[in-house]
Amino acid sequence: MSEDILQRQKKLQDYLNRTPFADFIGFKCEIMGDEMTAILPFEEKIIGNPSIRALHGGATGAFLELTAMAQLFLLSDEVSLAKPINLTIDYLRQAKAENLYARATVTKQGRRIANVHAEAWQSERARPVATLSAHFLLGDGE
């Protein structure tokens, strides 16, 4: 990491501010050095099952995807966010009508491709509601 982490944090914030979808689902993050915790504050609109008041799997999935992209951006020198190649979301528990938190780990970063894992939880960190494993394409090339 050649760039100063503080500069990188600022770039990430700038980037998120220019991502309408992040704003649309209410994505927030707290950055501590090179670590980031993402927060998805609960809102009625991200409910997927009104009868059991569970969050939508697509909201949880999109949140994990954004978390992985943001963490990868924070640790890389890339000028733009990486593009997803594929991702797998495992739904472990029902996500309740509460705030959702997530952290991502860059498992491997190559020249072109990065592998990232992310985990989302609610009231208990040790009881994740969903995990994500994804590959991203780095750089602006095709």
Partner: peptide, 27 residues
């Protein structure tokens, strides 16, 4: 929908929308 754009420079919809749609239609 403009509010679901992932990258303001290109105007392309965020992958998260595709994820949600595929999740929903599969269900």
């Amino acid at each position: 929908k403009p509010e679901t754009i992932g990258d303001i420079e290109t105007g392309i919809i965020h992958g998260g929308v595709v994820t949600a749609l595929l999740d929903n239609v599969s269900g």
